[in-house]
Simulated assay, not measured.
Amino acid sequence: MHLTVWNVPETCSEQDVRDFFERELGHYAKSVTVYDAGTPNAHADLELDSEVPYVGETVARELQSRRLAGVALRVSAAPFESEADDEHRRQAAP
């Protein structure tokens, strides 16, 4: 499960961002990739060590209330779709 975090402060280095999310997410942080660090477009992709959909949504809500270097984070979780859901949709289609 992946989360995208927007609104990462320009003042934070890639390591600052990585350390923050690893500390906030603990064992749920599988990987943290930071893009465009030090720019107004800085954002991060967080890969969670969980395949349970509600964990991603819960973590996204929790991170939404956090601040990094005084800036409120914006977090979005990718919608979860399993292969079983896809198969069910195909069978239900006319």
Rank of each mutant, 00 (worst) to 15 (best):
A60N: 07
H2T: 08
Q64P: 02
G56I: 14
H2C: 03
A92I: 12
R74F: 04
D19K: 12
D49E: 15
L25P: 13
S31N: 03
Y35C: 04
P79V: 11
V55G: 00
V52Q: 07
T58N: 02
C12L: 05
E14A: 14
L73D: 01
D45P: 01
V34P: 00
D49F: 14
Q91G: 03
W6T: 12
G70Y: 06
L46C: 01
S31Y: 02
P53H: 07
R66V: 09
S13M: 05
D16L: 10
A60D: 04
V17I: 15
R90K: 15
E10N: 08
F80M: 07
T11F: 03
D85V: 14
T58E: 00
A42R: 03
E47K: 14
V5T: 10
F20H: 05
L73Q: 04
V5R: 04
L63W: 01
H2N: 12
W6D: 06
R18G: 03
F21Q: 01
Q64T: 15
D86I: 13
R74I: 11
L25E: 08
Q64R: 13
D16R: 10
F80S: 02
H27E: 11
R74T: 08
E14S: 08
T33L: 10
A69P: 03
L48K: 02
L68N: 01
N41C: 12
E51Q: 09
A92V: 14
T39R: 03
E81R: 15
A78I: 14
V59H: 00
Y54T: 14
G56Y: 07
A37Q: 06
G56Q: 10
D36H: 09
T11P: 00
H27K: 15
P79G: 07
R18A: 10
P53D: 08
D85L: 15
E22M: 13
V59K: 00
V34E: 00
N7P: 07
D36L: 09
A72K: 12
Q15S: 07
V75M: 02
A92Q: 14
A37D: 03
V59G: 00
E51S: 10
G26N: 07
S76L: 06
T58A: 00
T39Y: 02
S13K: 11
P94K: 09
E81C: 09
G26I: 12
P9V: 08
A60P: 05
E47C: 07
D85H: 15
L3N: 05
A44F: 04
A44Q: 02
V52E: 06
A84Q: 15
S65P: 01
D19V: 11
G56N: 07
E62D: 11
T11W: 04
S65G: 07
V8T: 07
A93F: 14
L48T: 02
L63S: 03
V59D: 00
S65E: 05
T58F: 01
Q91D: 08
H2W: 10
E62K: 06
Q64K: 12
H88E: 08
L3S: 08
W6V: 09
P94E: 02
S82C: 06
Q91V: 11
